[in-house]
Design a protein around this nucleic acid. Sequence first.
DNA 1: TTTCTTACA
DNA 2: TGTAAGTA
Length: 96
Amino acid sequence: MTADGRPEPDRALYTISVAAELAGISPQALRLYEQRGLLSPARTGGGTRLYSDNDIARLRRISSLAEEGVNLAGISRILDLQEENTRLRSSGAEEG
DNA sequence: TTTCTTACA
DNA sequence: TGTAAGTA
């Protein structure tokens, strides 16, 4: 059951308000994160942001890094590097 | 300067 | 949703 009352899609999607609740951040802060390139949530036809469970996990990471004193630019870098790291290990380190 | 909150359209 | 003003 989703916040909107829907049954349960293949993968849960949350509005900016729900995503902010789960991540413990303010909706406005979430929009700031997107402007800085920290995430790229999906959007409905009207333009409403839809955060997936994967985005929520990333948001928790962002807030965690911010707590450590890392600025948004640094967080974006760390997240990007961590993804590349996982990508290389999964696809083989020969490419690059 | 950068981040986050509050307020308006 | 997007932008502006104010704060620490």
